[in-house]
Design a protein around this nucleic acid. Sequence first.
DNA 1: CGCGTCCAAACAACGCGAGG
DNA 2: CCTCGCGTTGTTTGGACGCG
Length: 371
Amino acid sequence: MGDRTGAERAAVSTHPVEVVTVTTEPTTLVGAHAPDWGASRLSKTNRADEQNGRETASAPPSRFRPLTERNGVTLRQEVRDWHDLDDAPISWKGATDAWGSYIRDKEDVETVFEDVSGNRASGSKPHRFDPEYADKQYAKLKDLERGISEEYGKRLHTAMLTFTASSTDDDGRPLPPVDHLDGLLSSWEAVRRALDRALDGRRYERLAILEPHQSGYFHIHMAVFVDGPVRTSTLAEPIEAHVRNCDLAEWDAHDLDDDSTVSVRHAGGDRTDDDSLDELAIYLAEYLGTYGDDPLDQPEHVQAANALLWATGRQRWRPSNGAQSYMATEAREPGTDWSVVGIEVDGEFRPADPENGGVDRFTTAGLDPPD
DNA sequence: CGCGTCCAAACAACGCGAGG
DNA sequence: CCTCGCGTTGTTTGGACGCG
């Protein structure tokens, strides 16, 4: 990883002027002047151009679809099509590029802070696409494994459920990716309810995660941890609920006899059974940190999928509350006496922009007639 | 009664900001 | 590196309820 970072830094150092410029306007970038930055920052997109230049030739048609064709979808300002009079979104490919710019700007800002200030002011918090964040998630996953296996002991059974949705319309045309994602999740309430009722009276936790397919479209993997034995037929109920309630879900993609749809394992049976849990960890870890330190080094379809999460604000991990408590990282002791810094607040301090609490968004409109 | 949705409260995530 | 706060959005949860 040191090599990659080194090469990256070297690349950055060849454009010192641009880097300095960036630090002066990190807020402008995501603020009111966002419409301009696509054009004014072409010089900054060198790395992306290299990658996209390679990918463009083989870019699937889906990348040229708009993010959504529906009204009332709230997305980041960065993926707004400012050339359109209506509030329409840009293409999937454009959104992926915008996501890449966002990632790159974060890196640049952090780097320059260290260079200029000299007093190690250190960069901002890592965003959720940073490998550091992925490391934390992986650590949390291991905490979940350990905690739940200790708690359930030999009774622990694990299951993996897979939920998919067709990424093409009736004519075989690739769907707008946000519409596909929303469609995929449209059955979520029913699925969760079905699972809860199917396992009524039994103790269980779950962790669902959105994972990109090779196409860049998402599917859902749900790990279920049950205190006691479970039949596959029991866990087929949430699958059935999904197919019933998700318009894009087809039965042929949810074969209940297929191990990839529903698989149950008795994790606590034998002595050398940590395999199944490790299998789960490895399985999920494939999408966490295996592509190196740089989010922009990840495969194109992973970046495209991340761009969707970024544009929509969707969260990738969907743990049950109980699972979440197992994943809680080292709760801070309230009794610890550490010298209280106490920011100079007492009502005096106010943020520069109290109006927006984080991300600028817009809502699509005028795309098609409402039902 | 099975199934699905609607709702509100509570919690967590996320992106921003600041300090030592 | 660590620690905070703030504001908005996303998600879980369980009760309630409508429907066939």
